[in-house]
Design a protein around this nucleic acid. Sequence first.
DNA 1: TACGCAATAT
DNA 2: CATATTGCGT
Length: 187
Amino acid sequence: MKKNKVIKQKNCLKWTANLHAKFMKSLEQLGEGRCYPKEIVAVMDVPGLTRMQVASHLQKCRFNNWRSPEERKSNWRLSGQESSSESQQKSSNRKYGTMPRFQNNIPNQIQKGPEFPFSTPNTSIGESSTQEKLYPPQCQEIQTTSTMMSDVDSENVTSNKPGIITSNFQQHIAEQNVLSKQYNRDK
DNA sequence: TACGCAATAT
DNA sequence: CATATTGCGT
């Protein structure tokens, strides 16, 4: 036997807003109904990224819009509230290459806002009547994703340092690297 | 084969 | 909790 497979790493890819943005961009680029994980990976051209990871993330995105870990940090309260609405698709069609909700419009107009939505409600807890996005039984809301433009940088959890800074002019804070090791081992 | 998704594992 | 991995159906 030979020893190989040194490149076998079990990296827990950290889906940051940046990476996620690129991910979405690729989706739009490919087009609706054509976002195959393989293609996505190809267009993303991110070394280290495997089809599985994309597929896994894609799954979550499809189900719900997926909230970035950073955002998730902000609102984490309340519970319950569920709606029992179901829609059945009577299509034995395979939902291939479907995108998560909304899906950007066709590449017709790029939202280029010289402004950035700045919200600084980061003072503490307390108020937080954030408008929750409820899913009406039938219509879905369309939300425009913030058009972010930044380079790509693959973040490897393996001894990766925040060396790469989002060297850009107007870029919001860099990605925090608060690695919280949450090891919850139940007995 | 590859994708989609549920369940499951870490 | 988030992501990876596995398994099954299509």
